[in-house]
Design a protein around this nucleic acid. Structure first.
Length: 724
DNA sequence: ACCTTCTTTCTTTTT
DNA sequence: GAAAGAAGGT
């Protein structure tokens, strides 16, 4: 067969990667160097040149979106649909494995996937039952720690908590949480991976299945793998399996949620027969933009090393704008976008990036004022909305009696007189007889042990669920969905919430009905109504829907730097480059975290194809008070020659806040005797400049940027500062 | 069970 | 300054 078409449009490095004959392959793919291209072509190469069965290839990604894109690009290149291919996300593939081998995994065939909301609710209950004070031991924190342990591969009995009071305490919650999950057949996201890792490791039948089937595993965004994902991959691979890992250590920005860049290095060390290919030619950005990115990232140590180059034009200089405050910054952004459009460009080719979501408000207001259409990424996703989750809970309980979280959610939304007390009764009965909550409720009703409001409500609920079960035998999913939303009283319940909120909720519920209609129409095979509904539930359990609004309008894109990864835009504006904001204050002390911030900045810069703007504000209203932060250190790390700095125009543009600034400054000076910007001397930290303050009297604290020691908050009455 | 008021917190986010 | 969550009152 002629396979040249696979190699035709690749550069030397890309071709080297695709045709590499070593057993394993590590592709260090710089931003915009065509990494997905290599991944897709590598698969095509294995199928067409090496004559591998497509079913023997596994391709793993992190997001559903990436998996979908990879699949369709492979199909496009091979000109044939992949029928039984294991192309998907880590969690999706682990889920598939656990469904197939549920017996071996010690799960029932209808285990429930717990999202983080449900997980938190269960942890809260356990924490309470153990008598922990929520304010001392916040459940959120316990949840975080438990998930971190799972990501590291620890079960509660293997956690090393000896002598660590904090860990010992949370591990008590973990232990109970494990029990509860086991009893109710609940599997959280971390558990999908941990459990499937354990099964394949310990069960030879499962191991044989994977080892004999998969000859090649390809992993995207390898720098984002955490410990359990890495080990999971190593378990799935047999001694004969070749692994292709594609990643970029410079774009590792998820260390805070357990991702280990070190996996890149340990992979090449563990497997001797690994070819390392660097993709360094960038097809995206101008020379100037790339120069800035390269110079910035040079400041990180521990890099694997890589220097992007391009044969594109120099391009225009990067523009740096110093704004008075966040409003001025936003206005500037709006002006630039207007200009962009007036030059005949599309808004949708422009992105405005920021470090944290809170920054979007000022930008949105300015864009709204200038009537610039924008689309904002972030915020809640469709299947995470409360009203949607409530409706879905009904669907879940109809198809799975033992889905206790779905029972709890549906029984109390809408409220029907069944409160905490009745629920406690149901829970204890269920535990006593080892039955599901819904069976326990039926039992209690039959026994007549629940009377009054609770009894009536519970009874009609059970009848409703029973009716729905019959309904789906003869009717499509979308009709059932409509029945649930209308007849259960959910629509009315959410509709009477105050203000716009209630209206949107009802609209979303309507939207859910059409979502199910769409799903039905996309099903190709002959399936019963019931099967389609079950597929739908499976689909949404690992895909929380889109987070963006209407696709079609020509709108400027607003998003955090994190969500910009993997995207590209002709015009990029990175806003809020101020110390404490970006790099974020919480990451400034720790060198590893600071490097991650720098990589985040690198990701931001490398999103730009043609034109890059960087802005920062002298003063910014944050958490209700004005802050004055110096420009980000990242700005200084970009060579001056690549930057064109522009300052605000006429003084008349000075906004009101400027006045407030002076007033607070004066007040503060009167009271405390120190003003912002004042240089001071501290006994141990040396010289520094006052950046910010809060509080008054004895509790007043000042933030000082010391020349040597960095930025610190000090209580003024103890600091003994000397004015210089 | 529901509503109101107070307190607390304020990075990033996929599955 | 605002949103979310807890606590307390009806």
């Amino acid at each position: 067969m002629d396979v040249s078409h696979i190699l035709d449009h690749l550069n030397d490095q890309q071709r080297e990667a695709v045709t590499s004959e070593k057993k394993h392959l590590m592709v260090l793919a710089g931003a915009g160097s065509g990494k997905t291209r290599v991944l897709v072509h590598k698969i095509a190469w294995e199928v067409e040149a090496l004559r591998r069965n497509p079913a023997s290839i596994m391709a793993v990604t992190f997001t559903n979106k990436a998996a979908l894109e990879m699949r369709s690009r492979i199909e496009e290149l091979l000109e044939t649909p992949i029928m039984d291919g294991w192309v998907g996300t880590f969690h999706g593939l682990a889920h598939r494995m656990l469904k197939r081998f549920h017996k071996e995994a010690g799960l029932s065939n209808s285990f429930t996937i717990l999202d983080s909301d449900d997980q938190l609710r269960i942890i809260k209950r356990i924490s309470k039952e153990l008598g922990f004070d929520e304010s001392l031991w916040p459940s959120r924190q316990s949840q975080w720690q438990i998930n971190a342990w799972k990501d590291e591969g620890f079960r509660s009995d293997s956690v090393d908590d000896k002598g660590d009071y904090f860990k010992e305490t949370i591990n008590k919650v973990y232990k109970e949480y494990e029990k509860a999950c086991l009893r109710d057949n609940l599997v959280d996201f971390g558990e999908l991976l941990l459990r499937s890792y354990e099964v394949i490791k310990e069960n030879s039948l499962v191991k044989d299945f994977f080892h004999s089937r998969f000859k090649s595993i390809l992993v995207d965004e390898f720098q984002d793998t955490n410990t359990i994902q890495y080990n999971w991959l190593l378990e799935i691979a047999s001694a004969e399996t070749s692994i292709t890992a594609v990643g970029d250590d410079d774009q590792s920005i998820y260390g805070w949620r357990g991702a280990k860049v070190e996996n890149v290095e340990s992979f090449t060390k563990t497997f001797e027969d690994t070819e390392i290919v660097r993709l360094e030619q960038n097809y995206r950005s101008t020379n100037i933009i790339l120069g800035a990115a390269n110079a910035l990232i040079e400041n990180n140590v521990d890099r694997l090393g890589k220097n992007l180059w391009t044969d594109k034009l120099e391009g225009e200089p990067i523009i740096l704008y110093q704004a008075y405050n966040e409003q001025d910054e936003a206005r500037f952004v709006a002006d630039i976008l207007k200009d962009w459009m007036n030059k005949g460009e599309m808004y949708s080719d422009a992105a405005v990036l920021y470090r944290s979501n809170a920054q979007s408000r000022a930008l949105e207001e300015a864009l709204l004022r200038s009537s610039i259409p924008y689309r904002i990424y972030g915020g809640q996703r469709f299947y995470e909305r409360m009203e949607i989750k409530n409706a879905i809970a009904y669907l879940k309980i109809i198809f799975n009696n033992s889905d206790n979280p779905a029972f709890e959610r549906s029984i109390s939304n809408p409220t029907r007189g069944v409160g905490e007390k009745t629920l406690a009764k149901i829970r204890s009965t269920a535990n006593k007889y080892n039955i599901s909550y819904i069976k326990a409720s039926a039992k209690l009703i039959d026994e007549g042990s629940i009377g009054g409001r609770g009894g009536t409500g519970l009874k009609s609920y059970l009848e409703f669920i029973a009716r729905c079960k019959e309904f789906i035998e003869e009717n499509p999913l979308s009709d059932l969905m409509e029945e649930i939303i209308k007849t259960s009283g959910l629509s009315a319940f959410h509709g009477k919430e105050p203000g716009e909120k209630g209206k949107t909720r009802v609209e979303n519920l309507e939207e859910l009905i059409s979502a199910t209609t769409n799903f039905e129409q996309s099903v190709r095979e002959e399936k019963t109504y019931k099967e389609i509904a079950e597929d739908y539930l499976d689909m949404i359990s690992l895909d929380s829907g889109d987070r963006q609004a209407s696709e079609h309008d020509d709108a400027a894109q607003l998003m955090t730097l994190h969500s910009a990864k993997g995207l590209e835009f002709k015009l990029v504006l990175i806003t809020g480059l101020e110390e404490t904001l970006f790099p974020h204050g919480r990451s400034m002390e720790n060198p590893a975290q600071l490097q991650e911030e720098r990589r985040l900045c690198y990701v931001g810069i490398t999103r730009a194809m043609e034109k890059l703007y960087i802005t920062y504000a002298e003063s910014r209203r944050l958490h209700g008070s004005d802050t004055f932060n110096p420009p980000s250190r990242f700005i200084k790390e970009i060579p001056k020659a690549l930057i064109n700095e522009i300052r605000p125009r006429a003084q008349t543009h000075i906004p009101y806040n400027r006045k407030d600034f002076k007033e607070t400054k004066l007040e503060f000076e009167d009271e405390i005797g120190i003003s912002l910007g004042q240089r001071v001397l501290h006994k141990s930290f040396g010289e520094g400049v006052v950046l910010n303050y809060e509080g008054s009297g004895d509790s007043a604290r000042v933030q000082i940027n010391f020349d040597q020691a960095g930025t610190k908050w000090l209580v003024l009455s103890y600091a003994n500062l000397e004015k210089l």
